[in-house]
């Protein structure tokens, strides 16, 4: 394994993106909207396809706008269906993103008559390719840094509103904080964050980092503030660990098992998600194993 400058940038870009996702993700989870990240990652496809068909080019800006519109629309539409149709939250989200994705695939197929638009380039944007640049700081680092900064400022500004409406939205409404608008703001923020990251890094890192670091922190943190800070830490740690696994451990294991020395590093984003999961499950297991068992309770009683 050789650690190059590129690896450092990959870890930095991954960590920044992961952290910028973790912030809104904590509140998504508290609002029981954890599957929104996955839904948006599918639902952006028609937005991208329409933007492409309208602008006729593969420029970033129109595609980003299209994806963003589709993401926000998913969140709003599923909320509306849930409310006016009395459909359960998960189901309404599922209906919307499945239909959006199907429209997207159809459009891509139609567009493919004219030019090649590969849907997988949207869903599996590559962290490794994003950092390749002749010199200086890669663009993706700047964009993810800006996203992180904006998210941090917004979360800091609206911390108490977000916390209150996640904890008790009826009380929040009575205290003059309309939970609908807080939730809408949160979903828009999530959409922007996700779409920014999809474009450069790919969806899987986003889906994972929205929820897993926050869930890991929730396993042992008691206050929302500490959950936020701990989830930032876990997000950064998972990025570094994931990349390390991707370039050393996994290729080495596979090469050994398959008797084929040709395998280089595997997808860093995928391994970052895996690493976040490893941290979550090891902490969960630790909690389970360290739990006082029946025997100790009986001893207390017989005193």
């Amino acid at each position: 394994m050789i650690w190059t400058e590129l690896d450092t940038w990959i870890v930095i870009a991954g960590a920044l993106t992961a952290m910028s996702c973790a912030l809104p993700g904590v509140f998504l989870q508290l609002n029981k909207q954890s599957m929104l990240g996955d839904a948006i990652s599918h639902a952006v496809l028609p937005g991208i396809a329409i933007a492409f068909l309208l602008s006729g080019s593969k420029d970033t800006l129109p595609m980003l706008a299209g994806a963003l519109a589709a993401g926000v629309l998913t969140a709003i539409l599923s909320g509306t269906i849930q409310r006016i149709g009395q459909v359960e939250q998960g189901a309404s989200l599922g209906v919307v993103f499945c239909v959006f994705f199907a429209v997207g695939i159809l459009l891509v197929r139609v567009a493919a008559d004219h030019v090649d638009l590969d849907p997988s380039c949207v869903l599996f944007g590559s962290l490794e390719l994003a950092v390749i640049q002749s010199s200086g700081i890669p663009k993706v680092v700047w964009t993810s840094l800006i996203t992180l900064a904006v998210n941090s400022v917004l979360v800091a500004l609206f911390f108490k509103e977000l916390r209150l409406s996640a904890f008790d939205n009826r009380y929040a409404a009575s205290a003059g904080i309309p939970p609908e608008s807080v939730r809408l703001g949160l979903t828009i923020l999530t959409s922007i964050t996700s779409v920014m990251a999809f474009e450069s890094i790919g969806s899987i890192l986003v889906i994972a980092m929205l929820i897993v670091p926050g869930a890991t922190a929730l396993l042992f943190c008691r206050s929302v503030g500490s959950v936020l800070f701990a989830s930032l830490g876990f997000a950064a740690l998972a990025s570094a660990g994931g990349h390390l696994l991707a370039i050393s451990t996994i290729p080495a294991m596979l090469s050994y098992l398959l008797d084929n020395p040709d395998i280089g590093s595997v997808s860093s984003a995928g391994m970052m998600a895996t690493c976040a999961g490893l941290m979550f499950f090891s902490i969960l297991l630790g909690k389970i194993l360290s739990k006082p068992r029946g025997a100790s309770v009986t001893q207390v009683d017989t005193q």
Binding site: K291, P292, G294, V297, T298, V300, D301
Partner: peptide, 15 residues
């Protein structure tokens, strides 16, 4: 008889 129950490692019923 002498039932003990704990929930999330907090004792709820004691003997």
């Amino acid at each position: 008889n002498s039932l003990n129950v704990s929930y999330h490692s907090k004792l709820v019923l004691w003997d």
